[in-house]
């Protein structure tokens, strides 16, 4: 019985990163990817905020659907469907799954920018989402 319990526990520990990641993991990952291009790169929530709010040559910005405040609910610009808040501080499902993060950056960057987002852009946005709705002082 003890052996089974130990095995289950070990399996859970090993399996954990596959389905539950922390927002900071994504920040670190994108930041280190961006450093491959620019060694002095450091993610900036402030840069992420203004980038999130800006249109990039197309009709939409990120905030067109998500609003400029990631701690509140958004609304799909085309369909009108409610979108849960983007800030992990108020919605723990955000920035918790590699598959979801990859999928939504892939889709939405194409919609807003007409291209894939760079690692630096993703790092800044993730920094902004983490900072939004978090106690003050967490921003950088």
């Amino acid at each position: 019985m003890e052996t089974i319990r130990a095995c289950v526990l070990a399996a859970a520990v090993v399996a954990a990163p596959a389905w539950a990641e922390r927002p900071a993991d994504f920040l670190q990952r994108f930041e280190s990817q961006a450093r491959g291009e620019d060694a002095s790169f450091r993610a900036s929530a402030e840069r992420g905020r203004s980038w999130f709010d800006r249109r990039h040559g197309g009709d939409w910005s990120c905030s067109s659907c998500h609003t400029g405040d990631p701690s509140t609910k958004g609304r799909h610009e085309v369909t009108g469907k409610a979108i849960a808040p983007m800030a992990p501080a108020v919605n723990p499902e955000r920035l918790s799954s590699e598959r979801q993060v990859r999928k939504w950056f892939r889709r939405n960057c194409k919609d807003v920018l007409g291209r894939a987002c760079s690692a630096a852009e993703k790092a800044d946005v993730v920094a902004w989402l983490i900072a939004a709705g978090a106690p003050t002082g967490a921003r950088r």
């Binding site: 609304r75 085309v78 369909t79 009108g80 469907k81 409610a82």
Partner: peptide, 9 residues
């Protein structure tokens, strides 16, 4: 409502 696609409205 905003759009006829928004059934939930």
């Amino acid at each position: 409502v905003r759009s006829p696609a928004n059934c939930e409205a």
